[in-house]
Design a protein around this nucleic acid. Structure first.
Length: 292
DNA sequence: AAGTCGTGGCT
DNA sequence: TAGCCAAGACT
């Protein structure tokens, strides 16, 4: 097997020995199971995804099974994973797969990209992990690993650049199955060793050739990286309101929503937004429910 | 194209 | 303790 960089073989070897045993990586994992895992894992830690993924796959083992249910059931089963619009889009995707692709998860990057809730990363990830294709799979882990290994910087730029994509493509092994293994391997290295906060460089298989190491691990000096305060935001309010509906057996009175958020103006705004998003259904009798 | 969109664990 | 961060997508 040909390697096209000094990083390829050490990282592939490291992955063979250190990969986590995740159910969506099992030999019997289906493209649908892999797709579901990728949606759930967007901005969400593995540990929180695991139980929800298992229950989800047990209940809806195929796209057609999910497509046959009301979207509200997907929202309810989503539980507290966060960003519940993902559940809605996953439900839409199940219906699109059922209608447009005969119930089979499409294998082409373009077809995947056309599905709701699936962007460049997820399309590449599913094409790579489920179908063994050769794609640059550029997520937050990979971006950070490459920034350190090659650019010698602690963190990548705020938003993804074309240069990063080119670089990721140039590192891809030529053989598709190997490229697919490389993709998970780099991601896993970022998740387990080359972590954001306190990297475990002593365990790194490419420590000796890491540009960031060689530069003396200079601290990040770019613009502030984030600032997502949460307490008191519309997002928190939306979360509270939706939790009431998730935990209820059926439609709820307006009063049941009112008690979970004191600021009436913000509460109405958040409720309207949830309705506009299709996450909440206002009934004619004045009550509210998850969508049908 | 910068803002918005949940939630909880970790340091 | 209070940020920081986690396999992004969409507008």
């Amino acid at each position: 097997m040909k390697s096209n960089s000094a990083y390829t073989e050490p990282i592939l070897d490291w992955y063979e020995k250190n990969a986590r045993d995740l159910p969506w990586r099992a030999p019997d994992a289906t493209p649908w199971g892999i797709l579901v895992s990728e949606i759930m894992l967007q901005q969400t830690p593995v540990s929180r995804v695991l139980p929800v993924w298992r229950a989800w796959m047990n209940r809806w083992p195929t796209p057609a099974a999910l497509a046959a249910e009301p979207s509200g059931e997907a929202v309810r089963a989503w539980g507290r994973l966060g960003y519940p619009r993902r559940a809605l889009r996953l439900h839409e995707t199940a219906r699109a797969i059922t209608e447009r692709h005969r119930g089979e998860v499409p294998s082409s990057h373009a077809d995947l990209l056309a599905l709701p809730g699936i962007g460049a990363y997820t399309a590449a990830a599913v094409a790579s992990f489920a179908f063994g294709q050769r794609h640059a799979v550029l997520d937050t882990n990979v971006r950070r690993v490459l920034a350190r290994l090659i650019s010698g910087e602690e963190y990548p730029p705020r938003s993804q650049t074309k240069a990063e994509v080119k670089r990721a493509e140039s590192l891809l092994p030529l053989d598709p199955p190997t490229a697919a293994r490389w993709a998970v391997a780099v991601m896993e290295l970022g998740a387990l060793v080359c972590t954001a906060r306190t990297p475990r460089c002593v365990d790194c298989p490419v420590f000796a050739t890491c540009a960031w190491q060689l530069a003396g691990r200079p601290a990040y000096d770019g613009p502030p990286r984030r600032g997502q305060t949460y307490a008191g935001t519309d997002r928190q309010c939306r979360g509270r309101l939706l939790a009431v509906l998730r935990d209820a057996d059926g439609p709820v009175e307006k009063a049941a929503l009112d008690v979970v958020w004191s600021d009436a103006l913000q509460r109405e705004r958040a409720l309207d937004a949830l309705i506009a998003d299709g996450l909440v259904d206002p009934l004619e009798d004045g009550r509210y429910a998850l969508p049908t």
